[in-house]
Simulated assay, not measured.
Amino acid sequence: MLIAINPSSKVSANSNSTSYDSVLKTAKKHLGARYVWGATGPTRFDCSGFTKYVYKKSIKKSIPRTAQQQYNHTKKVSKSNIKKGDLVYFGGSKHSISHVGMYIGNGKMIDSQNRGVVVEKVYAPWWHVVGFSRPVNLTY
């Protein structure tokens, strides 16, 4: 079998369809947005509404609505393998997740919580990390 490849039809590794830069840009655009329980954007968010919105708006990736559903239905990764754009989950246990944020590197995340959409440390004293997941493989 012979397959012809047209060099002008290359797919860029940095295509917006899977680019971390696109995800981060969308997330940062909403810094300061108000927290409202149950809100899914574009001007107010709860934690999982924010992560769902960012992935859908930036790269057309649909993820489940709640933090628990996002954890249950995305590929788990270990703390040692976390990458920018992965999701970080908090709560009492892996079966009792109450919060989610998006990892942005250097031990920080963007999340929507009582202070609104903010950048903060993943390992802040008020959070108990219970797991990590990768909703999609992103290019960097």
Rank of each mutant, 00 (worst) to 15 (best):
M1V: 11
L2H: 13
I3M: 07
A4C: 12
A4I: 15
I5R: 10
N6H: 04
N6E: 13
N6M: 04
P7R: 11
K10N: 08
N14V: 03
N14Q: 11
N14K: 13
S15K: 08
S15M: 10
N16P: 10
N16A: 12
S17G: 00
S17Q: 05
T18G: 09
S19Q: 09
Y20C: 08
D21T: 09
D21A: 15
L24E: 13
K25F: 04
K29P: 01
H30F: 08
L31A: 13
L31N: 13
L31F: 13
G32F: 10
G32K: 09
A33G: 06
R34C: 01
R34K: 15
R34G: 08
Y35S: 12
W37K: 05
G38I: 05
A39H: 05
T40G: 11
G41A: 08
G41E: 04
T43R: 12
T43N: 14
R44T: 15
R44P: 01
F45R: 03
G49E: 07
K52S: 13
K52Y: 06
K57Q: 13
K57T: 09
K57F: 00
K61Q: 12
P64V: 02
P64W: 03
R65P: 07
T66K: 12
A67V: 05
Q68S: 03
Q69H: 09
Q70F: 06
T74C: 11
K75Q: 13
K79E: 13
S80H: 15
N81S: 15
I82L: 09
L87C: 11
Y89T: 07
F90S: 01
F90L: 03
G92W: 09
S93M: 04
K94Q: 15
K94H: 10
S96Q: 11
S96M: 02
S96V: 00
I97W: 09
V100S: 03
G101S: 08
M102I: 14
M102V: 09
M102Q: 14
G105T: 04
G105Q: 07
K108R: 14
K108W: 05
K108P: 02
M109A: 07
M109F: 03
I110K: 05
I110W: 06
D111H: 14
Q113R: 08
N114Y: 13
N114M: 06
G116T: 04
G116Y: 10
V118L: 02
V118K: 12
V122A: 07
Y123K: 14
Y123L: 03
A124W: 07
W127T: 03
H128D: 05
H128S: 11
V129Y: 13
V129R: 09
V129L: 11
V129E: 10
V130M: 08
G131Y: 08
F132G: 01
F132Q: 00
S133H: 06
S133T: 15
S133R: 08
P135T: 07
P135Q: 03
V136I: 15
N137S: 14
T139E: 06
Y140N: 06
Y140D: 04
